[in-house]
Design a protein around this nucleic acid. Structure first.
Length: 440
RNA sequence: GGCCCCAUCGUCUAUCGGUUAGGACACGAGCUUUUCAUGCUUGGUAGAGGAGUUCGACUCUCCUUGGGGCUGCCA
């Protein structure tokens, strides 16, 4: 079998929709699985929207997701001459004709129409949807050149696919009806008809195409919200395909090895943000600690704080299992790097606004001050003794809020150890003072 | 309206004529525990409806219902 050649052919609009990028993912996987070529074609005929910036957004998305492509990028606008040559050819062979037409918006002019066969059945075997058939009489002739002389999608798309020697067209379900038309163009041109595979749409809870009204719908938004590209990639892949067993979190190598277009689902899939979030957590947990640590450092420093003064390796260990989004940092750990940390009002209300708490905190400050050595174990032993086996809650909760301002975080004694004796004692006293002064 | 396609837990799905219909997310309970997580154990929830074919249908066929796509001088 000849080398497979597939393409991702988006029109750059400045944003890349998740449904679109899923098509890119499936194309990429198909190419890598079959050892073929994955081509990128930029359908930039809409000059208004296809700005250099919009095209750059597209490149950035693909790079972010690790969708590397083969050969040079193919720009549709650079092939317009060819499109028009082919139109002349179709006109000459009688497969197309000129026609006066009035468009929806009331403009009248001469367009070139493609002449559909009037009888017979157009059929093809879709790799994902199976056998598809349609009576030729049910497909109308359609315009391929506008009255201003510019080629229309149908002809440009087919000619480009011929020129790029595309063997398999893997695209969205919304193109199914076009396929019956395009097949006729290929035939009229005497070109081999590629294999088709139409992917179902990603829909919202109501079953309608997933749009920005339903939440993040563009790749860039997921990146901004702290999703890992690997998690988005994996999740999108699972929306319509599975390896045939219970594995869900797959390495890129496994995906390439196992991906099978014929097993892709025909039905539309609802986008489930909760599962994506879970997937993201899975990928964060699997991150090498060094990688997680450098993300931690990067995000802390970007927030204007210095990532120093604590054992970063130990902190990274503590944080990694409880971080769902990298963007949760440094918000969830800033108190390690500044003494000017914020107090969560709800935490203060629940844990500190009680009689005797300032006294308790001061007493604890004194006890921690004398603690030597100051370790996770010694701190815990000390509080355990105070609690006399009745549960450490009454001590642990106020301490946590006093030194971090929050109700959640690493294990308390790990937290205190990371802060060190000096800060622990100072913060306990500081919180007590603020309470007495009514500042909290 | 016409044409095309689809239909298993709330969601993503396994099953490709014979299963106590399995897994994951979400949700509930429990264990661990100083919080939040993680981890482990555990619970409930599914074949749209109706005809066939068959010894036997979630699985094959047809109808109904429901959903989606297309029906542009957009792509």
């Amino acid at each position: 079998m000849a080398e497979t050649r597939v393409r991702f052919a988006p029109s750059p609009t400045g944003k890349v929709h998740i449904g679109n990028i899923r098509a890119a993912i499936y194309n990429w996987l198909f190419a890598r699985h079959t050892g073929g070529k994955f081509l990128l074609r930029v359908e930039d005929t809409d000059l208004e929207r296809s700005t250099p910036e919009a095209i750059q957004v597209l490149f950035d998305c693909m790079k972010w997701l690790g969708l590397d492509y083969d050969e040079d990028v193919f720009y549709q606008t650079k092939n317009v001459k060819r499109h028009m040559e082919v139109v002349e050819q179709l006109l000459a062979s009688g497969h197309a004709y000129k026609c006066e037409k009035t468009s929806r918006d009331g403009k009248t002019g001469t367009v070139v129409m493609f002449k559909m066969p009037k009888e017979g059945v157009i059929e093809f075997d879709d790799i994902v949807k199976g056998h598809m058939a349609k009576k030729a009489e049910d497909v109308q002739d359609f315009a391929i050149v506008r009255s201003d002389g510019s080629p229309i999608f149908h002809i440009a798309n087919v000619v480009d696919d011929i020129d790029q020697r595309v063997t398999h067209i893997i695209r969205g379900d919304d193109h199914v009806e076009n396929t019956f038309k395009h097949i006729c163009i290929f035939r009229a041109l005497g070109a081999p008809v590629p294999q088709y595979g139409h992917l179902s749409m990603i829909v919202n809870a109501q079953g309608k195409p997933y749009s920005k009204r339903d939440g993040a719908a563009f790749v860039g938004e997921f990146a901004e919200q702290g999703y890992l590209p690997e998690a988005l990639f994996n999740y999108l892949l699972l929306l319509g395909w599975n390896p045939g067993d219970d594995r869900e979190v797959l390495t890129r190598e496994e995906m390439v090895k196992l991906f099978d277009l014929t097993q892709v689902h025909v039905t539309a899939a609802k986008f489930d943000l909760k599962k994506l979030q879970w997937m993201n957590g899975e990928y964060i947990k699997r991150l090498p600690r060094e990688t997680f640590k450098s993300e931690l450092v990067k995000r802390v420093e970007e927030s204007g704080l210095k990532a120093e003064g604590v054992d970063l390796d130990f902190l990274a260990d503590q944080l990694q299992v409880r971080t769902k989004f990298l963007s949760d940092m440094p918000g969830n750990c800033a108190y390690f790097f500044t003494d000017d940390y914020a107090f969560d009002p709800k935490a203060v209300e629940k844990r500190l606004k009680k009689d005797g708490v300032p006294e308790l905190l001061e007493d604890l400050a004194n006890r921690f001050e004398k603690l030597d050595p100051f370790t996770v174990e010694s701190g815990e032993a000390m509080v355990k003794e105070l609690s006399q086996g009745q549960g450490m809650g009454p001590w642990v909760h106020p301490i946590r809020v006093a030194v971090s301002g929050r109700m959640e975080g690493p294990g308390l004694f790990e937290m205190l150890f990371l802060l060190g004796k000096g800060k622990t004692v100072a913060r306990l006293r500081g919180a007590a003072a603020k309470l007495r002064a009514g500042e909290l």
